[in-house]
Amino acid sequence: APSSAPSSAPSLPPYFIKGSIIQLADGELKRVEDLKTEDFIQSAEISSELKIDSSTVERIDGSHTSNFAIVQFSVGEHRAQVSVEVLLEYPFFVFGQGWSSCCPDRTTQLLELPCTKLSVGDVCISLTLKNLR
């Protein structure tokens, strides 16, 4: 039978739910709500393939009617422009601040993840591939 389930209710990945266990690169286990900026930086330093990049929020276009937002970032030292479409409650990790989303009330309601409002100018943690020789 063809699936006619509405596709208008996408779900967030399970690892953003409060209490989810996250393994850092050194093997340490932490709850998602306890992660610090240093955890990401140190994990990336250990990683042989991934490096942390700074992604500055340049623009946020969103509406509560669509449940989606388009977030435009300026990524890395070359300030490459990257846009991503995410659910309003999708959390990004802001340097020195923690989890932030376009709609922190929804994030807290759906995930119980403490969250602040993502704003233009925030610098988020993102990943790129290390240059492999």
């Binding site: 393994q23 690169a25 990524v75």
Partner: peptide
């Protein structure tokens, strides 16, 4: 009988969006 539930463990990098800047050269 209560079976122990395995708790999922997620790798740290799954939490971070992978934003690969385009290389101009």
């Amino acid at each position: 009988n209560v079976e122990p539930r395995s708790v999922p463990v997620f790798p740290w990098h799954s939490l971070v969006p992978f934003l690969a800047p385009t290389q101009s050269d």
